[in-house]
Nucleic acid binder design. Sequence first.
DNA 1: TATACAAAAAGTGCATGCACTTTTACTTTA
DNA 2: TAAAGTAAAAGTGCATGCACTTTTTGTATA
Lengths: 221, 221
Amino acid sequence: MKTPLQDEDHTESRLSDRIHQILLGRILSGQMKSGDIVAEKKLALELGVSRTPVHDALRDLIKDGFLNQEKNRRPVVASFTAEDVYDIFEIRILLEGEACFRAASRMDRLTLDDLRKQADILLSTQKDHNWLELWAQFDDKFHHSIAKASGSKRLLQDIIKHRLSHRALNIQAESPYSFSNSLQEHIVILNALDLRDAQSAKLSMQNHIRESQTLFVSKYS
Amino acid sequence: MKTPLQDEDHTESRLSDRIHQILLGRILSGQMKSGDIVAEKKLALELGVSRTPVHDALRDLIKDGFLNQEKNRRPVVASFTAEDVYDIFEIRILLEGEACFRAASRMDRLTLDDLRKQADILLSTQKDHNWLELWAQFDDKFHHSIAKASGSKRLLQDIIKHRLSHRALNIQAESPYSFSNSLQEHIVILNALDLRDAQSAKLSMQNHIRESQTLFVSKYS
DNA sequence: TATACAAAAAGTGCATGCACTTTTACTTTA
DNA sequence: TAAAGTAAAAGTGCATGCACTTTTTGTATA
């Protein structure tokens, strides 16, 4: 179970940043799930580093709400209540709606065409296990591209944060998605962006997120 | 310039949390301003503690965007571009608009009456230096109460975060507020909440924030 | 005087030690 | 057998040490 960190040399980044990435990955992949206890000392040993960078990484995860910690206690992977689930989507509706509105006038054609191409490929491909993996990648890229095209750094930051929560949820709830519907909604959004129709793009995005909200909330209640 | 930490005994909280509070206070009060360099080692010495809790506190401030740090360099108090200013208010409009909408049906009468009373007092008081202090307190309480009455923990958290940024801005721009207008807008919002008119409450709140946005953006460009 | 440069000072990132708290595992008791 | 109590093990929070990087300062050079 050892994961030596010396393999690659991301010399630019801090050890603590790399550890943050590793742990976030474990949470988003379900390797670490709700209620799991995460001991700083044990992790340090497992990763072959000292407690310090692990401590820093854990603190970041705590601040982002992926872990909870009480004083002198080991951090625990956060669990989501039905209300949390509802709220995460509600906030995404607001932020990503706005981002999509702004993206309509700002997203460059290259990105737009690239997204469209990937969507088309997914549409016409056998929906096997590998397809799901590709779809997840596309979904992430799609939402990220739009948030970025909003032109607002802060909006992007906030959207990333809430989408990460959404992805943690995704694991916990075992993806209640109707992937084909979701893909179809993405295409509707792309059409609106193509036409530079900000209002329609916003509404399609909000509708899209509301659809997953419904699915996830029903899974959680 | 020494500030010994031993004075009060917040025995429940961590040293790092208290230091976080102290530093946030310094930023929000203008004691530490944009571009200022904040050395972990020096601060530790000044506060009479080791680097560790200071390090943790600084990391939190960095994550919240109040400080920026590059690897191996001392953190710097963040400065706001005109775009940052615009964005902070834009996000507040979204989040606090939603919070206010929800608060209309949820805010208890006690809180509502309390806010109204404080507003009335401010309305009928001499607008001297002390008044400004009271107004700032009221403004904070007003927005916080509404965010809390939204019933959403996450919404509250996000609103607090962006309002803190707003307050940091406030210092930098030396409050371009027209306080009387602002107070008047607060009362309009209270009236809508009183009537449990969610849509109107939301619009009044958004209008209110948009007003400060205009003032602040013009200060910054 | 202004510029380049080198040595000293100070700083950050990570490792480790220590005091105290929580957790675990074992033993005793009903 | 199950509950309670307790000693050992492990954990967290903070202090400190060390290697390496950045910053400062003082000196020499144009």
